[in-house]
Design a protein around this nucleic acid. Structure first.
Length: 427
RNA sequence: GGUGACGUGGGUGAGUGGCUGAAACCACCAGUUUGCUAAACUGGCAUACUCUUAACGGGGUAUCGCGGGUUCGAAUCCCGCCGUCACCGCCA
């Protein structure tokens, strides 16, 4: 959520940002509407506070007068205060409704894109930030897509998952399951080496948590929901990991906070179908190692750069061809100021698969999280910047590994993984 | 799930209707004193919103788990919810 004072002070920049996101002309008015509602809120707040101050001072007189035995005077003031009650109640009601309306409007405003975000409408318009300069691997005409390889080598079984749960819930078996575990261990070890604290968070979260990182209300339909207990299955570890610090005031010395966690991720992916979502390209449950940083506002873009290097390093170690995209305004997530996507080239499908997304949310999340830091002793608390990235998402990495590494003798496991898998090929 | 106890500031903990935004102690910060350190002493030490100020600052409101109620006035009384702990039940 954007801060109102930021909107006030940078009104034109906010409007410009919405345009970068291709906001409809009629919705640009939301910015001024938010400001107007906040003006009204201030008015009511001030007038309500005055009424309450009067009540409080009169009330304390009542007590004093009673003690002095001046019953009549006390009685008179008491009646006067009684009259104030109605007025206070009415103003409280108005304050509540103005605040609710203001929040409603603020929730509809996405983050302001960073200056470097290119204009554009779809993923076609994303800017190639770091291209793959070597040659892309080519496989012969008999190369198989990963879903066929999976069947051939018994790596995972989607039909079995359908029997147990429903479509989009793969069952990994044998060496496939082992490969999965190897990747998780590898990614976590790499994150630890890079200074991230490893965390095992809950997989179900409550409403407050889902709201604080921005999944509610804008991505409600994307999450599985357990109605009986009013809990949501996490779509990404970002949600519980970032919420660890919800409401906290950190010292500047604590920054940056670096945490990582492996979790399964659950996504309903409502409305997705077609050839591009075959196999592991898009599933309802997949495993992901997430890295999260809570950073000083002045450091956050350097931190984002550091995260990109970390993620790129993983792909390099896995010997996968990849490129990095800077998302355009139209493709940028609602809460993000700047996002880079990592795509791995899948040689058999001859297309790029998104395997990671790293974003700087600046203060958009921290404002909802009420997550702040203090510059020094006694300094006023300020919002931190939050960032996160996948490092990495497993399903599509496996898809790419299977496809790119297929040989007539089976699927070759990259060297770095061999000590984790305990085998060097799947055949 | 059942029964009982409890929920106060960074921590311990006092406080049963007004003088309590909250004692005291600990921790922390600054200063004084002192060969150094330690000790002692003095002072400071919540957050949000809001008004005011060029600024430093000052004023107001709210917050004692959360939400409602009673009252001129609530940390304190009443109701609901949530949580923690103990015992029982169940259980990886």
């Amino acid at each position: 959520m954007l801060q109102l004072n930021v909107i006030r002070e940078n009104r034109d920049r906010v409007v410009q940002g919405l345009k970068t996101r291709n906001f409809r002309e009629e919705d640009l008015g939301l910015v001024d509407k938010a400001i107007a509602l906040d003006d009204r809120r201030k008015e009511v707040q001030t007038s309500l506070d005055e009424a309450k101050a009067k009540r409080n001072s009169l009330s304390s007189q009542v007590g004093a007068l009673f003690k002095e035995g001046k019953r009549d005077e006390a009685e008179q003031i008491r009646k006067e205060v009684s009259g104030l009650k109605e007025d206070i109640a009415r103003q409280e009601e108005e304050l509540r409704s103005v605040e609710a309306e203001r929040t409603e409007v603020l929730l509809q405003l996405p983050n302001i894109p960073h200056d470097s975000v290119p204009a554009g409408h779809t993923d076609e318009d994303n800017e190639v930030y770091q291209a793959w300069t070597s040659e892309l691997p080519t496989l012969g005409g008999d190369a198989l897509p990963h879903w066929e390889l999976a069947e051939k080598y018994g790596i995972f079984d989607l039909q079995l998952g359908t029997k147990i749960t429903g479509s989009g819930f793969p069952v990994f078996r044998g060496k496939g399951a082992r490969l999965q575990r190897a990747l998780i261990a590898f990614f976590l070890d790499e994150a630890s080496k890079a200074g991230y604290e490893e965390v095992v968070p809950p997989l179900l979260v409550n409403e407050d948590t889902a709201r604080a990182t921005g999944q509610l209300p804008d991505k409600e339909g994307q999450m599985y929901y357990v109605e009986r207990d009013n809990l949501y299955l996490i779509p990404t570890a970002e949600v519980p990991l970032t919420n660890i610090y919800r409401g906290d005031i950190l010292s500047v010395d604590d920054l940056p906070v670096k945490i990582t966690g492996y979790t399964p991720c659950f996504r309903r992916e409502a409305g997705s179908y077609g050839a591009h979502v075959r196999g592991l390209n898009r599933v309802h449950q997949f495993d992901k190692i997430e890295i999260v940083q809570i950073a000083h506002p002045e450091q956050s873009y350097a931190v984002l750069e550091e995260m990109l290097l970390h993620i790129g390093g993983l792909l390099t170690k896995l010997e996968l061809p990849f490129r990095v995209l800077r998302l355009c305004g139209g493709d940028l997530g609602f809460t993000s100021a700047l996002t880079f996507d990592f795509e791995v080239y899948s040689a058999a499908q001859e297309r790029w698969l998104e395997v990671s997304s790293a974003s700087n949310f600046e203060t958009y999340q921290s404002n909802r999280l009420k997550l702040r830091y203090r510059e020094g002793e006694g300094a006023k608390p300020q919002l931190v910047h939050t960032l996160n990235g996948s490092a990495l998402a497993l399903a599509r990495i496996i898809a790419a590994l299977l496809e790119n590494n297929q040989t007539p003798e089976g699927i070759v496991i990259p060297k770095v993984l061999q000590s984790y898998t305990g085998f060097d090929r799947i055949d």
